[in-house]
């Protein structure tokens, strides 16, 4: 048993499939390269993260809407040390503005020299290569700097 196998007996990536998670449409859309969230049918509040319950009016009538797949950097950091097991650095994290919401993401396929406040970013989905179950392919909403 390797060290990583020992640690990953608890899985840091959420269960994303229909049998595990009512918000599975988010992940199904993400696999197609779309970034989605929920909008309230009663008060039109667009929330991030997606919800079962509207945080503005407590309605349960929600619909899925597309967010833009591009955004701009509000603040960023380049992590050089102290990574969770399974990650190696440097890791670039950013708070970005995506349409009406703020969104926390990790930048992939990005040169640190291109990172600056206000820079344009675009969705670049990461496929998780450590499946929790043999059948479940998983994805994460990472971004990259737009060229």
């Amino acid at each position: 048993m390797t060290t990583e196998n020992y640690v990953f007996t608890i899985d840091p990536v959420p269960m994303q499939g229909k049998e595990h998670n009512k918000l599975y449409p988010f992940y199904e859309a993400l696999k197609e390269g779309r970034l989605t969230t929920t909008s309230c049918l009663d008060c039109a509040k667009v929330a991030w993260p997606p919800r079962q319950t509207c945080p503005a009016c407590w309605s349960s009538k929600m619909e899925w809407v597309d967010l833009p797949t591009t955004g701009t950097i509000i603040s960023f950091t380049i992590q050089e040390a102290g990574f969770p097991i399974g990650y190696s650095g440097p890791l670039i994290f950013a708070l970005i503005k995506v349409g009406p919401v703020k969104f926390v993401t990790r930048l992939v396929d990005t040169d640190r020299a291109d990172m600056h406040k206000g820079a344009n970013v675009e969705l670049a989905v990461t496929r998780v290569d450590t499946p929790a179950l043999p059948t479940e392919a998983r994805v994460l909403p990472t971004f990259k700097i737009s060229k």
């Binding site: 640690v7 840091p12 993260p49 950091t77 969770p84 097991i85 926390v104 994460l140 909403p141």
Partner: peptide, 25 residues
């Protein structure tokens, strides 16, 4: 690395720490 992974449980695992985010960033 496990200790640091565990600390990610204090953030929103589904939407933020699943991307490797922990308290320092």
């Amino acid at each position: 690395g496990e200790t640091i992974l565990n600390m990610g449980a204090g953030l929103d695992r589904e939407w933020e720490s699943s991307m490797g985010m922990t308290a320092p960033p």
